[in-house]
Amino acid sequence: MVSRSSKRRGVLIGVMLCAVVVGAVQPAIAAPVRDAGDQAAPSRKSPVGATEQEIARALSTSLRDPRWREQVRAAALGTGDVDLQALARGTAAPRGRDLLATVSAADRRIVGLKGLPASTGSLLRLRLGAPSMRAGLGADVTPWIAVAAAADDARTITAYDSQGRAHAVDTARVPDRPMYILDIDVTKAHRAGLKVLQKAFADKGLTSLPKAADSAATANRAATTSAAGWWATKVTAVEVNDDEEPWFKGAAEMFSLVTGFGQDGAARVDSVDMPYLDYDGTVYYPNQILVNWSNYKYNLADVVMMEDDDGTNYRALAQAITTALLTVTDQGTYIPLVNAVLSAIPDGWFTDDPDYVESWYTLAQNSTGRLNGASGNGWMTVEPYFVEQF
């Protein structure tokens, strides 16, 4: 399992960073433990993870206030993810108001640790651990608080009770006891992080538009595309067998990265959000544009599908790989871009990183029908599609 996870991490990090260059259940509660750090499989060992653990403990003790506890309960039952800072700001309950300053400071700290701009705003979110817990979440129940940011193969996660005591919770089965899960708004952080990376690399000239010195064939192709429209590859159906998300992490946050060389010969990868792809073992029919071929110099591209977690410092990553990416040049034929990036990234920078789910190689403009993924974890059906311009 360790080697498998390491392999996923290596493939994923390389492709992700290239991408932004341009463009019925038995109880599962174990005996209390002394502290979160004593877990056999602790939550993410990072400053971000440590901050989340602090907030989880503080929130758990605040739920001793019945008025505040009921407000949290109503919010958790009413929506999928609750903005914890906004909830604390809007309450008149003393324990909730007392929590506001702590949560606000934690949000600012996490934003900074992830290398995101202050304008990103709040990231801490709270939700019910699983839909099956709704029936047990009565007004007289005080749920435990756990942090989602643990390794996907962790055997336990740490949950805090209303006294702030830590308990080991089995990750293999959904517990009967109602629990809240503290998490980061991964979609919000991911989109803000991509902007940070894109700007950093654009400042180094790695996202330049086609130049006048491009070949005549490239220029003619661009002119034709501009006048009439552009060819695309459309996904008509897609399924993954394993989205890599255990119960405590909820629905997956899926997206794909399409990699290749841009019209100017510089490395290019387009990020394609797949917000509908929530669960494994389900076939989705999105009719979604996956590749815009007018953006690419060659008639070949690779696709990597992943589920985003968190823990990335986007600004630091951009600084570390700039030099390596500047050495990647167009050699007149399609070449993979992953290895140059992998060599520039320390493994220790990622712990609960985005999970590699599946990949498809040498996708062409005329590719059609069912395409099985390289790792056997998913498939998609595609077809060429011409997008007309008005």
Score class of each variant (00 low, 15 high):
residue 4 R to C: 04
residue 302 D to F: 13
residue 32 P to E: 12
residue 222 A to M: 15
residue 321 I to H: 00
residue 342 L to D: 09
residue 388 E to I: 08
residue 200 A to R: 02
residue 15 V to K: 05
residue 96 G to Q: 02
residue 263 Q to W: 05
residue 303 V to H: 01
residue 240 V to G: 11
residue 187 T to N: 14
residue 235 V to K: 01
residue 325 L to Y: 05
residue 310 D to M: 10
residue 84 L to N: 02
residue 104 S to R: 15
residue 112 G to T: 07
residue 21 V to Y: 00
residue 62 S to M: 06
residue 28 A to R: 08
residue 267 A to S: 08
residue 202 A to I: 00
residue 332 G to F: 15
residue 324 A to R: 10
residue 260 G to W: 13
residue 305 M to H: 10
residue 142 T to P: 03
residue 8 R to D: 10
residue 84 L to C: 05
residue 140 D to V: 07
residue 43 S to R: 05
residue 277 L to D: 04
residue 126 L to Q: 08
residue 166 A to Q: 08
residue 380 M to S: 09
residue 263 Q to T: 04
residue 226 S to N: 14
residue 68 W to S: 04
residue 322 T to Y: 00
residue 143 P to V: 05
residue 300 L to M: 11
residue 308 D to Y: 13
residue 337 L to H: 06
residue 381 T to R: 11
residue 112 G to Q: 11
residue 309 D to V: 00
residue 191 R to S: 10
residue 19 A to I: 00
residue 231 W to A: 12
residue 288 Q to E: 09
residue 53 Q to W: 00
residue 333 T to R: 15
residue 383 E to T: 12
residue 310 D to F: 09
residue 44 R to F: 03
residue 62 S to D: 05
residue 237 A to S: 12
residue 67 R to C: 07
residue 19 A to P: 01
residue 155 R to D: 14
residue 267 A to W: 01
residue 122 S to A: 13
residue 13 I to L: 06
residue 163 Q to V: 09
residue 211 K to P: 01
residue 121 G to M: 08
residue 88 A to S: 13
residue 258 V to C: 06
residue 146 A to G: 03
residue 80 G to H: 07
residue 253 E to G: 03
residue 71 Q to E: 15
residue 309 D to P: 00
residue 372 N to H: 10
residue 218 T to Q: 15
residue 193 G to F: 02
residue 384 P to I: 05
residue 42 P to A: 03
residue 72 V to H: 00
residue 250 G to T: 02
residue 109 R to A: 13
residue 352 D to M: 01
residue 110 I to F: 05
residue 205 G to Q: 09
residue 52 E to A: 11
residue 372 N to L: 11
residue 159 A to I: 03
residue 223 A to K: 14
residue 121 G to F: 09
residue 338 V to K: 14
residue 115 G to W: 04
residue 180 Y to N: 00
residue 52 E to G: 10
residue 216 A to V: 11
residue 103 V to D: 04
residue 215 S to T: 15
residue 222 A to L: 15
residue 119 S to Q: 13
residue 122 S to D: 11
residue 166 A to G: 07
residue 190 H to C: 10
residue 37 G to Q: 14
residue 99 L to G: 01
residue 294 S to I: 04
residue 59 L to A: 07
residue 324 A to V: 09
residue 172 A to G: 11
residue 157 I to H: 08
residue 254 M to W: 02
residue 53 Q to K: 03
residue 239 E to W: 01
residue 300 L to I: 12
residue 176 D to E: 15
residue 159 A to M: 04
residue 241 N to T: 06
residue 245 E to C: 04
residue 10 G to M: 12
residue 313 N to Y: 01
residue 147 V to L: 06
residue 208 S to N: 14
residue 262 G to L: 03
residue 263 Q to Y: 06
residue 103 V to S: 10
residue 44 R to W: 04
residue 282 T to A: 09
residue 280 D to M: 06
residue 357 V to C: 01
residue 379 W to Y: 15
residue 362 T to Y: 12
residue 279 Y to T: 09
residue 16 M to Y: 02
residue 49 G to A: 05
residue 54 E to S: 13
